[in-house]
Design a protein around this nucleic acid. Structure first.
Lengths: 144, 144
DNA sequence: ACACTATTTATAAACATTACAAAGTAAGAA
DNA sequence: TTCTTACTTTGTAATGTTTATAAATAGTGT
């Protein structure tokens, strides 16, 4: 499953003429395997073991490359640092206001919204993002 | 119209026990009158004339206060700096991938999505945000 | 294996945002 | 009105993320 996605991603890179380096391989693998939505720094730290000499710049560079190919999406919430999410299936995120937990949330998609937006604004729409905010079950229990 | 909104905002501040300073008044006024979605720095610069001694910190401090009262929303896109939007009526934003222009876009709201999200994830939902991305009419013409 | 070019690395720089302490001021009480 | 107190502002320094740069390195097609 994860193997499969990794191969697909590598194929996408080949098709885009992007070189496959060990660092890129590892960053992608981490993004696919980790169920979380890591920051650039978290990725950097978690690969320190395998790549003691890897630079933070490499992480940022490659996340940008992945974004440009469309393999990865950047999530900019209120916090200081961006989070990165492997684009696999269409899904949205629901975020806890208290503890910051991010949970994937599948929804049919909002094609009608995109269509209406095109008509109203004259834009040619390519994409959209949505996040839902609330209080996760754990934080609801600990009502302080 | 703008006058009215300003008064409402000031009342909201009074009710929350937040002091009304000239700086806060000016920042709010600017946010309401400007049809754009300014960054903290843009607000700071545009008030240089009236408040030559105002600190950037004041702008940030007060934007945080306004956010806490619910008068203002912070918009974090891919760019480096956040943008701030006066909460008036429910609306979404459509953003040009090329030139970064932000256009307001009214839509009935996505209550069903919130409801479904509650059921699926167990969160208690409070809010959501959505942005649509595309190419604005101007940038469509100048096909480079 | 070679050559060409993209990529990595290390470091410094840029940038937005926050922290802090001292000076100033809004707002209610006397 | 004046006083008092706690909240705000200011100026500056610090923090933290992200980008720029140049030299060293390593993929990839031939």
């Amino acid at each position: 499953m994860a193997e499969e996605k990794l191969h697909e991603a590598i194929d996408a890179m080949k098709n885009s003429g992007v070189r496959i380096t060990p660092q890129r391989h590892a960053i992608l693998e981490h993004l696919i395997q980790s169920m979380s939505h890591p920051t650039a720094d978290e990725i950097y730290k978690s690969l320190e073991g395998k790549f003691p000499n890897m630079s933070v710049a490499t992480v940022y560079n490659n996340l940008r490359v992945f974004k440009e190919i469309g393999l990865v999406k950047e999530l900019t919430y209120g916090d200081s640092s961006s989070r990165f999410d492997c684009v696999t299936t269409d899904h949205y995120h629901i975020i806890c206001d208290d503890c910051g937990k991010i949970v994937d949330f599948h929804y049919p998609g909002l094609d009608e919204v995109e269509t209406l937006a095109e008509q109203v604004t004259g834009f040619r729409v390519g994409d959209h993002r949505m996040e839902i905010y609330g209080k996760c079950p754990d934080c609801q229990k600990s009502k302080h």
